[in-house]
Computed example of a mutant assay.
Amino acid sequence: MSELTGGLEAALVKASSPSWAQRVRAGRDLASFADVSEAVEALVGLLLDAEDTAVTRQTAEALARVGTVPAIRLIALAVAEADDNQADWLQIGVHDALMGPGGVPDIAVVCGKLVWDPEEAVRRGAADISAWADGPRC
């Protein structure tokens, strides 16, 4: 098993842990695998974590820092499915990435690419994320 595959497998195990701290770590570790089909379901589950908002926030931040179309697409899917509380924490996670050290790729540009996504939920979520990225900066 390669180191890459081992890292993915270990993170997938952590994603279903009863420990919120392990799920936070899984969200961070899996973010770089946003384009790997085996990680997609786990990442969306972490973004919509029903038990701890820290998992939602940290996973959204990690994916926003990756900033690729697959990573932002997963946040957009979660935004479309999220309840109001989850959506608030998704927004805070994206904001944390935008305001954090080192900067992130231009999320609004990535969201502009997602307006052509075949899934309506992704297009709707991407519009919300784009508004967050263009909104007032603290």
Rank of each mutant, 00 (worst) to 15 (best):
D49V: 05
S32F: 13
V109M: 13
L98K: 06
A133D: 09
I129K: 04
R57G: 00
R57D: 01
E38W: 11
M1W: 12
A10M: 08
F33I: 07
M99H: 14
L114F: 02
K113F: 12
G67E: 05
I107A: 06
L74F: 05
A31R: 03
W132G: 01
L8C: 06
L90T: 00
A34P: 08
V122P: 02
A82N: 04
A21C: 08
V109S: 15
D49I: 03
A97D: 00
A87S: 10
G100C: 06
L98R: 08
T59W: 00
D84W: 13
G6C: 07
V79C: 07
P18E: 13
G27Y: 03
L46W: 03
W116F: 13
A21G: 08
A76N: 03
L63A: 00
W116E: 15
A64F: 03
E119S: 10
I75H: 01
R124P: 04
L114N: 02
P118M: 09
T5S: 14
S2T: 13
A80R: 06
S19K: 12
I75N: 00
L74V: 04
R57W: 01
V13R: 15
D134W: 12
E61C: 09
R23D: 00
R23P: 04
T59I: 01
V40E: 15
A76T: 01
E9H: 12
L48I: 04
V109P: 11
W132M: 06
G100I: 04
G45W: 06
M99Q: 11
S2C: 04
A80P: 08
